[in-house]
């Protein structure tokens, strides 16, 4: 049995995964009860979320402890890099499904519904244009303009990509104070983005009558920006964890995958936003 330092670290049996499974089961079951108006749904869902938070804190706490006590060698580090890369690839494919739905509706299904033969049979007088809420949604809405708050949000998110890169350079040159300040700045920009996005949703519902139920445009607008906003929120929580670790003196100039993984994730949500800005808001 090998116990030499520098080997590939294999963790001992762990009880964290089963907590995650229990949490997901409760969240799924509670969610179903809630959506169908059955009793106890919300409570079950909340318990599930709490167990999930407990699991995430415990599991990541264990990993951070192992990392700081030097149990991960170079090869483990490479594993983490592959793992994070493939995880981000899976996220890209998730967003691709929703972008696919957007393009399909804009380019195919909405024009088809306005096609002379189809329209004559189904909804005479429907003309294809985008943004559209479809031929049979009576309520009118105003689409979200691109060059107000969304453009500002684009600038905010792109700036946060710059600040996290400056923080990364500072970490590599062991300038801890710069690192901590630019991490703080990145988090502040992330939180600002989320706040602006929340304000924009309120504006859409209150002033523009643009809701999830506004047909093709409303569905794709809110699902795409909603999932993106969720990812920004998760990314911001990850940034806060990393920032707290920076303040505690974690990470070394030559060994800081935790930091880099979060930075990759942050750049990923940044790139998705660019796609959103161009195809959902602008064009």
């Amino acid at each position: 049995m090998s116990t030499q330092p520098g080997g590939y670290y294999l963790p001992s049996p762990s009880h964290w995964p089963i907590f995650g499974s229990i949490a997901l089961f409760l969240m799924a079951f509670g969610g179903v009860l809630m959506m169908n108006g059955a009793g106890g749904g919300t409570a079950t869902l909340v318990v599930g979320v709490l167990v999930m938070i407990y699991m995430l804190v415990g599991w990541f706490g264990t990993v951070i402890g192992e990392s700081e006590s030097g149990k991960y060698n170079k090869q483990v580090d490479v594993s983490f890099r592959w793992g994070m890369s493939w995880f981000i690839f899976s996220e890209v494919m998730f967003f691709a499904a929703f972008f696919g739905a957007l393009f399909y509706m804009r380019v195919l299904s909405v024009p088809w519904l306005a096609d002379a033969d189809t329209a004559a049979l189904l909804w005479p007088g429907f003309t294809a244009e985008w943004p559209a809420s479809g031929p049979a949604i009576a309520e009118q809405f105003t689409p979200m303009g691109a060059w107000g708050l969304p453009a500002i949000n684009t600038a905010i998110l792109l700036t946060s990509g710059v600040t996290i890169t400056i923080a990364h350079w500072a970490l590599k040159e062991n300038k801890r104070s710069t690192l901590n300040w630019f991490m703080f700045l990145t988090i502040a920009l992330g939180l600002t983005f989320i706040a602006v996005q929340a304000y924009e949703y309120g504006h859409a519902y209150k002033d523009l009558n643009l809701t999830l139920e506004s047909g093709a445009y409303g569905a794709t607008f809110f699902m795409l920006t909603g999932f993106h906003g969720f990812h920004v929120t998760v990314g911001t929580i990850m940034l806060i964890v990393i920032w707290l670790r920076c303040l505690k003196g974690h990470f070394k100039p030559e060994n800081h995958f935790g930091f880099e993984g979060v930075a990759w994730y942050w750049h990923f949500v940044d790139v998705v936003w660019l796609g959103l800005f161009v195809f959902v808001y602008w064009l």
Binding site: S109, L122, A132, G134, I137, G215, Y217, A219, M223
Partner: peptide, 23 residues
């Protein structure tokens, strides 16, 4: 998308809202 069409009023798969079951 199926879930949100069922419970949250989206129209991904409903032609009335510009969507399409074929999607």
């Amino acid at each position: 998308m199926t879930l949100t069409d069922r419970h949250f009023g989206t129209h991904f798969f409903n032609a009335a809202g510009g969507g399409d079951p074929v999607l």
